[in-house]
Amino acid sequence: MAEAHSPLAQFEIHPLGGPIHIGGLDVSFTNSALWMVLAVAGITAFMLLGTRKQAIVPGRWQSLCEGMYDFVSGLLKENVGNEGRKYFPFVFSLFMFILFCNLFGLLPGAFTVTSHIVVTAALALFVFFMVTIIGVVRHGLHFFSYFVPQGAPVWLLPLMIPIEVLSYFIRPLSLSVRLFANMVAGHVMLTVIGGFVFALGIWAGWVPLAFVTVIFGLELLIACLQAYVFTILTCIYLHDAIHLH
């Protein structure tokens, strides 16, 4: 496959401007960083402009902002309970960040921040460590009873405990790979089918064009769904850390 037209070319990172190094650390402003900044700016603008009137009876845009708020706070309340209130800003930021990165990634010519395993793994590991630390701080050593399944016969415990531990430590992996793989697969699929449009020319190209339109709709759904899944799994992990089972 020619590298220039590879469906993976869209995931390439190149620094905008020169490379920047601070204390031996490469902090070049890349296209990935640009789209992160755009996502943050987009979220802030969206929420600020949506609530600029602070109307008692919300308009469409303000309803959307309030809907986002209600959605995440409902998710947190349903899955964690009232103890989760403290973590609401974090969970809300996480949801909005992933949602906007996913959606901005679908813009033509855009770069999808969440299609990089480093980014998703960083987010997932952050969630993982945060949740573990919360659990240990809240329950002390008692937290490790989480790995002992309740009601299991004692002779099964040597088998069950390693499985529980493994499934606990595999969480950040599945969390990050899920988001990453969804984004990559979606964009590769769009690019490949988009390539067919040109390959088949003006007569037969309409078929993949229709297909790509449908897939694009699916990708919009996936973009929202993955943000939702990431958030709800974070909430479930928080629940486990706070309530132990």
Binding site: S174, V177, R178, A181, N182, V184, A185, L225, Q226, Y228, V229
Partner: peptide
Amino acid sequence: ALVEATGLIAF
């Protein structure tokens, strides 16, 4: 999403 992730990991 969870089920789909399995396929995506294969991908």
